[in-house]
Simulated scan of single mutants.
Amino acid sequence: MICKKIKIEGKNLNINDLVLDIETTGLDFRIDKLVLLGLVKIVAEDTYIYQYFAQDDTEEIKLLKIFLREIKNKRIITFNGDSFDIPFLNSRLISQKLLPVFPESTLDIYKVIKSYSKFFAYESMKLVDIEKLIGIERKDPSRYKAISKLTEDILTRNKPYPILKHNENDLIATEALTNIENFYTNKLSIKSKIGKFWLYQANINKDIGNFEFKGENTLNDLYVAENNYQLIVKENLIKLNIHVLYGRFNDDVRGFVTINNFDIKNESSIDINEKLLIIRENSTYNYKNLLNLCKKIIENHY
Rank of each mutant, 00 (worst) to 15 (best):
Y50C: 05
L98F: 06
F120Y: 12
D57Y: 08
A202D: 11
L155M: 13
I8D: 10
N186E: 13
N261S: 13
I278T: 07
I194H: 06
S283R: 11
N182D: 15
E212M: 13
I194K: 12
V40W: 05
F120P: 07
S148T: 11
M125L: 14
L107A: 03
F88G: 02
K41I: 01
I66T: 12
L37K: 11
I94T: 14
K118N: 13
D153V: 01
N260Q: 07
K7S: 07
E123K: 15
R280P: 04
E226A: 12
Y116G: 03
H301M: 01
K114P: 00
L98M: 15
C3Y: 15
L276D: 06
L276T: 06
K11D: 09
L64S: 06
T151M: 14
T24D: 06
S148R: 10
V244Q: 08
K187C: 10
S283G: 00
K206E: 12
V233W: 04
P87L: 02
E281V: 03
L13F: 09
G209Q: 06
N186L: 07
D153A: 09
L150P: 00
L245P: 00
K165D: 11
D17N: 15
N266P: 12
N236L: 04
K295A: 04
E267G: 00
V112H: 06
L13T: 08
Y285W: 02
I130T: 04
S192L: 01
V128G: 00
L93P: 09
L237I: 12
E59F: 13
F211Y: 12
I130V: 14
K149S: 08
V253H: 14
Q201V: 01
T174L: 02
K139P: 00
L89C: 04
N250H: 07
N228W: 03
Y287V: 07
Y246Q: 13
Q96C: 13
L18V: 08
I204H: 12
V257K: 08
I130C: 03
C3A: 03
L188Y: 10
Y287S: 11
I134R: 10
I238T: 02
I238Q: 04
Q51C: 07
N217P: 00
L293P: 12
D129Q: 02
N16P: 05
K74R: 13
L291D: 03
N261P: 00
I232D: 09
T178F: 12
I134K: 11
H166R: 07
K74V: 04
N289G: 11
K33L: 02
N227T: 13
S117T: 02
T47M: 07
K193A: 05
N292H: 10
C3E: 14
D32S: 04
F183H: 15
P87E: 01
E152M: 11
T151S: 10
S105G: 00
I272E: 08
Y116W: 03
N90T: 04
I77K: 09
I172P: 10
N241A: 11
I278L: 10
L290Q: 05
T58G: 00
Y302N: 12
R143D: 13
F119H: 08
K62S: 14
I270W: 08
F29K: 03
G38N: 12
E235K: 15
N182M: 07
I2S: 02
T24C: 11
I163T: 15
T78K: 10
L150F: 10
E181I: 13
P141W: 01
K139Y: 07
N182K: 15
L13M: 05
K5C: 11
G10H: 08
L20T: 11
A44N: 15
